[in-house]
């Protein structure tokens, strides 16, 4: 990794929930143009990391920094982080009854880009294109946000939001969980539409299956609140073959020291 400051960097991040430490010194660097994957067993702190990056109020940051374009964002409100170009695709998207998908997306796009920069006609055109790309039916845009959506529909909606908001760095929190192969393909297709020099990605997952569609350049393994191993795509295969026990065996002692 080069010496220059990364576009997005987590330094020795510690966080707890209700006084219980979960993250115990996480460090990560993500540059735009890179695809990172973060794997780890249940309870290792993966979702906590995603929530802390966005500033979830239930988590307390007890140490460390999160730098986005060199700016420490730890003290910022979630909406300020979003406006800087951070995006989280939720593991469990929340329903907003009475608010249509179209209204929700317009509100979000206005908020992130600034309402004066959003021309309604262009917004509609973009929304149409992106919906078609994700094979989202037009009628869907008039349904209430995530209200009565199937798991797959919710995840597709997260990706539609991501395409509309065009973040600089996106985190996908187990977007692949519970998706059938067709849904997974569409979701991946959506993400790959953004992949490029202006987009950095962190895919959090249990399963390497999604990594067949969204090819990571970097893989990190999180255990007991720390990144215990980072490597290239070859690591994905190794993990697939050997399982987590291999990692635990290899790094268990170090983890215990913490």
């Amino acid at each position: 990794m080069s010496a220059k400051t990364a576009d997005f960097e987590i330094r020795n991040l510690c966080a707890s929930v209700e006084g219980k430490p979960i993250l115990q010194g996480v460090s990560l660097k993500i540059n735009k143009g890179e695809n990172h994957a973060l794997m780890g067993p249940n309870g290792s702190g993966k979702s906590t990391l995603a929530n802390v990056i966005m500033g979830h109020p239930a988590y307390e940051v007890t140490g460390g920094d999160i730098l986005f374009h060199g700016q420490n964002i730890v003290e910022l409100e979630p909406e300020e982080r979003a406006r800087l170009g951070l995006f989280l695709a939720f593991q469990y998207p929340v329903a907003i009854p009475g608010v249509t998908v179209a209204k929700f997306l317009k509100t979000a796009v206005d908020a992130v880009r600034g309402v004066q920069n959003v021309k309604p006609a262009e917004f509609m055109k973009e929304l149409r294109e992106n919906s078609e790309y994700l094979e989202v039916d037009k009628a869907f845009l008039n349904r209430f946000m995530n209200d009565g959506f199937s798991g797959g529909e919710k995840k597709r909606m997260e990706i539609l939001q991501m395409l509309m908001l065009k973040p600089g760095i996106a985190i996908m929190d187990e977007t692949d969980s519970g998706l059938d192969i067709d849904a997974l393909k569409i979701v991946s297709k959506g993400v790959n539409r953004l992949v490029g020099p202006a987009f950095g990605l962190l895919v959090i997952t249990h399963y390497e299956r999604i990594l067949n569609y969204i090819k990571p350049d970097h893989l990190h393994i999180l255990m007991q609140g720390r990144v215990v191993l980072s490597g290239g795509p070859e690591l994905v295969k190794e993990l697939e073959q050997k399982g987590y026990d291999w990692v635990r065996e290899k790094f268990g002692e170090e983890v215990l020291v913490v």
């Binding site: 409100e77 979630p78 909406e79 979003a82 998207p93 907003i96 979000a108 908020a111 992130v112 908001l165």
Partner: peptide
């Protein structure tokens, strides 16, 4: 709900 909306830039 609020966190979800805030994560989309909405204050």
């Amino acid at each position: 709900q609020l966190f979800y909306l805030k994560c989309r830039g909405i204050k």
